[in-house]
């Protein structure tokens, strides 16, 4: 079902031909008011975290510690051990096919780094961004342990997290943009 590359190129070509002149060729110059900053990444509250681990901060944690964080911070919305609650089921143990597919972190999420990134910037929803990096690593480890991809004492940090291969890593087909080699 992915768009063949030739069709993609054809669509791009059509879009280019349909562009108004100002956007297609004639660039719209601005007054150059942007303030030039030195290296900004260090100052960001949430640097982007890529699947290869770029952007991950110092710190570490394991599932044993993570369970304590989870039970204190997460169960109200996500239920015990990632099941139940109104905030979206985190752990499924269910199938992705059949009449009632049940996607969740363990069987659907393609990258472990996403779990760290989203937890750090968005959770808990009543006070996002308040967990320490160690707590985020730990709760990430707990969910990865519940997902069956790490042991409960495995140390999760900037080195080990991107090496974890999620079960559904290859389960996605890019539709509107060609997949670049990784």
């Amino acid at each position: 079902m992915s768009m063949p590359e030739s069709r993609y190129v054809a669509v791009l070509l059509l879009m280019t031909l349909a562009l108004p002149a100002a956007a297609a060729g004639g660039k719209i110059a601005g007054p150059n008011l942007g303030q030039v900053l030195p290296n900004t990444e260090a100052a960001l509250p949430y640097p982007s975290i890529y699947p290869d681990g770029r952007g991950l901060p110092a710190g570490h944690g394991n599932a044993v510690d993570g369970r304590k964080v989870y039970d204190a911070q997460c169960t109200a919305c996500h239920g015990s051990a990632g099941r139940g609650g109104s905030g979206g089921q985190l752990i499924s143990h269910g199938p992705l096919t059949g009449p009632e597919p049940d996607p969740a972190v363990d069987n659907y999420w393609p990258f472990a780094t996403t779990l760290f990134d989203f937890t750090r910037r968005a959770m808990p929803m009543t006070a996002p961004g308040t967990l320490s990096n160690d707590e985020v690593y730990a709760v990430t480890a707990y969910l990865l342990n519940l997902s069956g991809v790490i042991g409960e004492n495995d140390d999760i940090n900037a080195e080990t997290l991107p090496k974890i291969r999620m079960p559904n890593r290859d389960g996605f087909v890019w539709i509107d943009v060609p997949k670049s080699p990784r």
Partner: peptide
């Protein structure tokens, strides 16, 4: 998520 278990991504 599609019936074959694969998911469409970047369906912009």
């Amino acid at each position: 998520l599609q019936p074959d278990g694969k998911a469409r991504q970047f369906t912009f």
